[in-house]
Write a protein that binds this DNA or RNA. Structure first.
Lengths: 208, 208, 208, 208
DNA sequence: GATGAATGAGAATTCATTCAT
DNA sequence: TATGAATGAATTCTCATTCAT
């Protein structure tokens, strides 16, 4: 019995590993070159497999990028949930998210997310193929909204501001593209930037 | 005398008109479909002319989008300069820019600008073909920076915050993409949004 | 009457001049760039007229090159007839032709002729559009043949060689392309080359 | 062992075969229609494959014709070297080349070579893309030159004639285009033509 | 499963030719 | 008559996707 299942799960494990590898590499290349400028050939050869093999894991280029998004969103959610569990103020939780998205390991991924989030064609793509993405993103938005509401309830954030606006601004602060020049030209560290950005935002929404 | 010049200037005027029309339509289509998903054929047929005619005005697809950008940037600069002349505080000037970019007629264009500003391939394109764009954008950034500096000098903005960070945040607030849901779901008017966004930002950077 | 005809003939004269100019320029450009690489635009702008004007003189690009050929062939024939009139031996006449085609003013034109004569598409073109060309060329071939026959009859050329072969070889010696390297690398003058080529050919066909 | 190497070499063999087939067909079509009048589509469909497949073997149309040339030149060189090895007089060797180029199987190819050799645009193309071609052709020219020099040294050829001129004339005799009419109209066999051409040339350059 | 050769729809671009002014 | 803007057929080349091995 084990002998019949072990190979199965072994295979399955290998399959998972390869799939993860493909996603990793594809994410990298998409970030470097952009979705349209990246060919399936390039992804495959950078993974070290044949083009056809990619298609055994993902039915098409669309699905590949959708999968990348889904995975990244899930990780963000995982992180969010973790930081929600840790007992702390809503502001501390949002600061942690800001840090995670921008200054931490997720930095690169955030770039891709924001890049693609802003492009029309990707949005259309997700509207068609990426139902899951949409709901995942909704979850993120909702969690952020809830944190902001909680802050309001606690009297920490300005209750006269619409939560939706606060949420939107918070999310638009997550685009690292805008901060590139701060790093390259002004020699600021990501950590510094996050601190300043957080300061401005939380002051901006603070209860009077 | 007039007869010798009139036809020339007439032709020239017609040419200008058509060129403007192409730019307008192209801007629209690029906004709807994205750069890569838009074919020259589509632009031409939406203008109501033949594919070849577009090439009489713009040497290639690249140049077309670069031209759109250049025109938009110039208009932004024109507007900025106008609002700089009007006597008012730096904050009022920045609020005017925010309004212009997001709530006014420029709304749609701002979307395209931000869309493309965030995509990797467009950035590469502009790095290669769009020298003028780069310098136009630098001008915008510089003017915003100067206004923020001025506000600091007047004691209105927090002088302990790096100007560069303030500038980056201000610019990242110009992406209307992020605010779309506010309009469609929360039924906020662009004007309201601008007011709230401005409030949060200027509170955030206000001198203590 | 004169008043009604003079302008006519004046116009006609101007028309002729312009046509000649177009032919001259077109010949130059075709020689520089080749038929396919030359655009009607380039010809027109080098003549200093509008593209459409070329079409008032020649119905198409094909006809333009056919006209160039026709004109060149006629000039060769004119020259041939002139040298036939001058009393001299067949060999002297053929040498004169060789010189004319290669070393004289006709040099450039000969290049174009040979260039085009050797290309498949031009041959097809002439088969379709250039009836006159074919017959003009036949005339040239015939005259050369007759001269060779005459030389045979006089006992100067080897009567055992087929005239047609002699003719073919003579004509294939008219391609200046082959001699370019002699000029550029071996620093031979066109005159020297003609002398040597003639020497080899006439020795080759001399009666034993 | 064989099983691991066989598939590789099998694939490679098939690849070679297809490549050769493409070259063959392309050569034919180029000869029939000319370079510019031939579309990649036509070549592909005559081979019986898709357009894209041609591009798997040759990066572009240019490279295709360059490859054809390179292959043909190599074959000529191979033949030349073979005939150089066979002990015989320089004249016999040159006659063999003449025969090979014109009367033998190579006939068709020689036509293409000469066709393209005479066209301006092909020359430019080769100047840019065909470094190898240039050097291959130089080799051919050099070998012919050496044979002519050797003949002079042996006292068989006229030492007062410049070798370069003799070489040029010999090479210009290799254009079968000029001899077409001999076959079609005068009903001469290629063999006859070669004999006569050779006779005239070698008499022409014979030592006195 | 993995491969990568083959496919062919699709896009950008060119340019001979036409025709309204 | 001269012009040159407009046209659109034709061509080259790319690349996501398929499928026989």
């Amino acid at each position: 019995m084990q002998t019949s299942q072990s190979p199965r799960s072994l295979k399955e494990k290998q399959r998972q590993e390869r799939e993860t590898l493909i996603l990793q590499v594809a994410e990298e290349v998409f970030l470097e070159r952009g979705y349209h400028e990246t060919s399936m050939d390039e992804i495959a050869s950078r993974v070290g497999i044949a083009k056809g093999t990619v298609y055994l894991h993902f039915p098409g280029k669309d699905d590949l990028i959708v999968a990348i998004f889904a995975r990244d969103m899930q990780e963000i959610l995982r992180h969010l949930d973790a930081s929600l569990d840790a007992q702390s103020s809503p502001q501390a939780k949002l600061e942690a998210l800001l840090y995670f998205m921008y200054a931490g390991l997720f930095h690169k991924r955030t770039q891709l997310l924001s890049t693609i989030y802003h492009s029309v064609d990707m949005r259309r793509l997700f509207a068609e193929k990426g139902n899951c993405i949409k709901s995942l993103w909704e979850s993120v938005v909702e969690r952020v909204s809830l944190l902001l509401e909680e802050g309001k309830a606690r009297g920490e954030f300005d209750a006269t501001l619409p939560t939706s606006v606060m949420t939107s601004i918070f999310l638009s602060l997550l685009s690292p593209k805008s901060y590139e020049r701060l790093i390259s030209e002004d020699k600021l560290s990501p950590e510094d930037i996050v601190i300043h950005v957080g300061k401005i935002f939380f002051r901006g929404i603070a209860a009077q």
